[in-house]
Simulated assay, not measured.
Amino acid sequence: MIETKIRKVGNSAVMTLTAEMLAILDAKEGDTLFVVRGDDGSLKVLAHDPTLADALAAAEVVMDENRDLLQALA
């Protein structure tokens, strides 16, 4: 487990990513990251993946088009 702090910068709360975290993510300053919420309420940080971005965009469209049906199934 890697520990980090949340700090205030202007009107935002910022989490600093250490060099170790960036290495694990294979990311660098300026890269895009995705934060995905798990079913258990956890958050997962993922490096930018164009395939994932396309899949998430498609899922958003499907969920928007079928909101009532998905609500009934929930």
Rank of each mutant, 00 (worst) to 15 (best):
E65G: 09
D39G: 12
D40N: 07
A13L: 13
K5N: 05
A13N: 14
A27V: 01
T4P: 07
R7Q: 13
V36L: 06
S42M: 08
E20S: 12
I24Y: 15
F34D: 00
V14D: 09
T51M: 04
D54A: 15
A13S: 14
T51P: 01
A47I: 00
L25M: 06
T51Q: 11
F34H: 04
V9E: 10
A57M: 07
E29M: 03
S42W: 02
I24S: 13
P50C: 04
A58Q: 15
M63G: 11
A13D: 12
L69M: 10
T51V: 05
L43K: 08
V14G: 05
Q71Y: 12
A23I: 01
A57R: 08
L46K: 11
A13M: 14
A47R: 10
L56R: 01
G41T: 03
A72R: 14
L73H: 11
V62P: 14
A59H: 08
G10C: 05
G38T: 02
V62S: 15
K44P: 00
F34Q: 00
T4M: 06
A27M: 00
I2D: 07
D31K: 08
I24C: 10
E20P: 00
A58F: 10
S12F: 13
E60A: 13
Q71H: 09
L69S: 13
M1I: 11
A23V: 00
M1D: 09
K28E: 09
A13K: 15
T16V: 05
N66E: 15
L33P: 05
M1A: 12
V45A: 01
D39F: 06
D39V: 03
A53W: 02
V14S: 06
E65I: 07
V45W: 00
G10L: 03
A53R: 07
D68A: 13
L73R: 12
K5I: 09
A53L: 02
M1P: 13
L69N: 08
G41R: 11
Q71V: 06
V9K: 13
G30I: 01
D40C: 05
M15T: 09
G41S: 02
